[in-house]
């Protein structure tokens, strides 16, 4: 392909560069802007007078004496106790990832090694389940959960998210296990292992790349969820995303919007770090289902 690049006419090159530049700005600039603005006061970030205030920080200078202020972060994390929401999110996300992967590896391994017709039907069923809008499922949970008094507790939201996550996890791990040669565990069974021992001693040590990739997507699903956490958790057990949504309900008072801005930036930071370190896995995970299947 390298020779093709040299032959490209100059005008086309310019078009490509301008296009990529536009896309990169569209994709990245909003985050940069919001991060910058989160250190200003509301009068600057949402400036009635002149939007350039957000850059120069005129009101921030007047109100706080410096060009940057951490007031938004202080208000969100301390005054509005965003830290409890962050803690809840951490508990939920870690539990969802660990449980989904445990159930998913067992199930995905069985589906990859079964070779029977019903395994295929189960995969089709999982596909149907994956297509269900989450809110339709939630409207089925609410009434029973109220009746059984398990509404509003973290474990309830965790198990629900594990279940919603299962179809995707099963599909992904199933395709990863198909790539691990059958001979590996079958020869272990010839040597006298039971199926489970073969799985534990031979498959588990080599499955980690696939499990990590799948885990990333489970993490994203749990972390980014709004539907389940907003409807199944109460005030005391709120996670970050519904908490941010609840900030918006009280934006009338000056400065509260900046709490939401600061909280949004805080909640985006872990995702940035995740993409930075796991870009390769995310890309390979996205393409695993499409290019091979």
């Amino acid at each position: 392909m390298s020779e093709l690049i040299h032959r490209r006419p100059k005008s086309l090159n310019i078009v490509i560069w301008v296009f990529v530049l536009c896309w990169v700005v569209a994709a990245g600039f909003p985050f940069l802007w919001t991060m910058w603005g989160s250190f200003k006061v509301q009068g600057d970030f949402f400036s009635k007078a002149d939007w350039t205030y957000a850059i120069s920080g005129v009101r921030t200078q007047i109100e706080t004496g410096g060009a940057f202020t951490g007031d938004g972060y202080f208000g969100a994390w301390v005054t509005k106790s965003f830290w409890t929401a962050a803690l809840n999110t951490m508990i939920v996300v870690i539990s969802v990832v660990v449980i989904s992967l445990t159930l998913g590896t067992l199930g995905g391994y069985a589906l990859a090694r079964s070779g029977k017709k019903y395994a295929f039907y189960l995969l089709m069923l999982a596909l149907v389940f994956r297509a269900m809008p989450h809110i339709t499922l939630v409207s089925g949970y609410l009434l029973p959960f109220f009746e059984w008094n398990i509404w509003g507790h973290l474990p309830t939201a965790i198990i629900v998210m594990v279940a919603i996550n299962q179809p995707f996890t099963l599909w992904m791990l199933h395709s990863f296990f198909l790539n691990i040669p059958k001979d590996l565990d079958e020869s272990a069974m010839v040597d006298g292992c039971t199926r489970f021992q073969a799985f534990r001693r031979v498959i588990v040590p080599v499955m980690w790349p696939g499990v990590i990739t799948t885990g990333l997507f489970s993490f994203l699903l749990a972390y980014n969820d709004f539907t389940v956490t907003a409807t199944l958790l109460g005030q005391s057990s709120q996670t970050m995303v519904p908490k941010i949504a609840s900030f918006l309900g009280t934006t009338q008072t000056e400065g509260n919007v900046m709490f939401a801005v600061a909280a949004v930036v805080s909640a985006t930071a872990p995702l940035f770090i995740l993409v930075m370190f796991f870009q390769r896995q995310i890309v390979s995970g996205l393409t695993a289902g499409a290019v091979k299947g």
């Binding site: 445990t102 159930l103 998913g104 067992l106 199930g107 391994y109 069985a110 589906l111 090694r113 079964s114 070779g115 029977k116 395994a119 189960l122 999982a126 389940f129 269900m132 339709t136 499922l137 939630v138 409207s139 089925g140 949970y141 009434l143 029973p144 198990i159 629900v160 594990v162 279940a163 919603i164 299962q166 179809p167 099963l170 199926r195 489970f196 799985f199």
Partner: peptide, 29 residues
């Protein structure tokens, strides 16, 4: 893979999906 082994491997995953995806669809109706 034997049917029995398959069943035990898939069981936990299947139970969560049935309880929290298949049942709610019925209960919604």
């Amino acid at each position: 893979m034997k049917n029995r082994t398959f069943f035990w491997f898939i069981l936990p995953s299947l139970v969560t999906m049935m309880l929290f995806i298949a049942l709610p669809i019925g209960s919604v109706f």
